[in-house]
């Protein structure tokens, strides 16, 4: 039980990463694949945040006097996650616009049926 409470964030993060990778590898519908990319991104972000956590820590903001600096969590992963979220949004927006165009061209989002380009 102690193991679970210690590692629950890691388990959650890598659970999301594996779900995302599995969706991307297995599913054929483009929208589902894009959702998989989103889940993968979220998992990575959660992992980064979990790396910076310290036990019973507070946010790294000195909003009032008397806050203990030793009790604050690592600010760097939070800054990284901010960047990573924005990158995720950018990729999702571009992927969705491509999906719109693809649907207009082929009338389907099934990746098995979209095989204009061959080896």
């Amino acid at each position: 039980m102690e193991f679970l409470s210690n590692y629950i964030y890691y388990i959650g993060a890598f659970g999301l990463i594996f779900i995302g990778l599995f969706i991307i590898l297995v599913k054929h519908n483009l929208i589902k694949v894009i959702i998989g990319i989103g889940i993968l991104d979220t998992g990575v972000n959660l992992f980064l945040i979990a790396v910076g956590y310290i036990s019973k820590g507070t946010a790294p903001i000195f909003s009032k006097a008397g806050l203990d600096a030793n009790n604050m969590v690592d600010p760097v992963p939070q800054a990284l996650v901010l960047t990573s979220i924005v990158i995720g949004v950018a990729i999702l927006a571009l992927a969705l616009s491509l999906a719109i165009r693809l649907y207009k061209h082929y009338g389907t989002l099934d990746l098995r049926k979209i095989k204009e380009q061959r080896w």
Partner: peptide, 30 residues
Amino acid sequence: KAGIESSIKYLIQGSVGSSLLLLGIGLLYG
């Protein structure tokens, strides 16, 4: 047709790659 299809293939593979890269950077930082 060809451009959109290749772009979406490139995007899927590239974004998996960049997630793996970020994961690796996260592990190193940890």
